[in-house]
Design a protein around this nucleic acid. Structure first.
Lengths: 207, 207
DNA sequence: ACAAATCTTGCCCAACAGGCAAGTTTGCAC
DNA sequence: GTGCAAACTTGCCTGTTGGGCAAGATTTGT
């Protein structure tokens, strides 16, 4: 396993998390654009300049939680056996992540997220967070595929998979009556690609 | 058809395009972050303040072309017959768009795009452009689906479709030896969802 | 032709990104 | 433990940016 990360790294993670929490909390009860970076830094007991050393914008700080979860999902994908169907691998990783990271999501967190949603331009930064890991997921998938179109297929799989997870989570945030686990399962089932069948109906672009 | 848009609208479209072109050109041969909004506005013969009336950032100006093409694709989707399989509809719209909007892409434009790629944070704004139309595509699909999970499925379809098109275009920009039309066709075929089959292998999360 | 709606521009200011250098903290070898 | 190197924090500073506001120009509908 990896060694204990050392004091320095732990402190960095702590301030990063403190900034994230402060940003989230302040944005929730004042509205994102009425919160200055300085206020966030103050709430986390660091200087404004230090905030910039960690995040390049308020939005990045806000979505740091998502970023961490997505990194975790990448780990979970890497842990999966390499002799499985790619979509099965991805589905299991997503469900695992949901179990270990989202089930403890309290109602409070949900209402928070629902208040954040709606702010224009925030969704853009969320998809950006997903796009960041997309390359890495694709790289991991490429290691598991072969065939001449492996490069394309791995990138398509990574992109569609992450897009689907995003849709499932976003949908659940707005309609939390159904458990997230079921939402993720249903979404991934709906998006499961058909087993590779070279020329099918999509190959006819006429009318 | 719709009336001629009127002088005012035509002028607005013209300046918007001028700003877009200027932004693209300047960003290409100076590097995006060495170009100020003021320089772009100057090159388009408007004031810096007017730039802000049209775009809220350099990046938005840069991707205005993509935005226009995506809007056009939405139109193409709406024009498709309503009694077709959703993925067929989307595939045809994407191929049509490719034919009418990308085939005239000269080598110059390609090298330009390839130089822009690589700049960190630009990819984020590109996915944001795609995310903007995602809701509208989902809405159009929802009109064509029924069943209790139509809402979820339309959002999943829209998200995976746009993600796939994005991957195809990005891949083509870096490896233009294969025609874009083929890249799009191949990517969409690889991502085509399996015909709805409620409980399949994905329903078993145990390792 | 005239009034209403809309666009452009200049002016302004608070917020922001990020380079730089001095001071502080942590890691590591001895 | 002592000491040195690497890494981190902070304050300071400058150029850039977003967007409110109001005066003047342009387009539109009648």
């Amino acid at each position: 396993m990896d060694e204990s990360p050392g004091l320095r790294e732990r402190k960095k993670a702590a301030t990063r998390l403190a900034l994230h929490d402060a940003a989230l909390r302040l944005a929730i009860d004042q509205g994102l654009d009425r919160v200055t970076i300085e206020a966030i830094a103050d709430a986390a007991n660091v200087s404004r300049r230090t905030f910039s050393n960690y995040f390049s914008s308020k939005e990045e700080a806000i979505f740091h939680g998502d970023t961490m979860r997505l990194r975790r999902m990448l780990e979970l994908i890497r842990e999966q056996p390499t002799d499985e169907q790619p979509w099965t691998v991805l589905t299991r990783a997503a469900l695992r992540l949901t179990e270990e990271s989202y089930l403890d999501a309290d109602t409070e967190w949900l209402t928070h997220r629902r208040q954040l949603r709606g702010h224009p331009g925030l969704a853009a930064h969320q998809v950006a967070a997903y796009a960041t890991v997309e390359r890495e997921v694709a790289a991991e998938l490429a290691r598991r595929l072969d065939g001449d179109d492996a490069a394309l297929r791995s990138r398509v799989l990574a992109a569609t998979f992450l897009a689907t997870v995003r849709v499932a989570v976003q949908g659940w945030i707005e309609h939390p009556e159904q458990p997230l686990l079921d939402a993720v399962r249903a979404a991934l089932a709906a998006a499961a690609p058909a087993p590779t069948r070279p020329a099918d109906l999509a190959a006819d672009p006429t009318p």
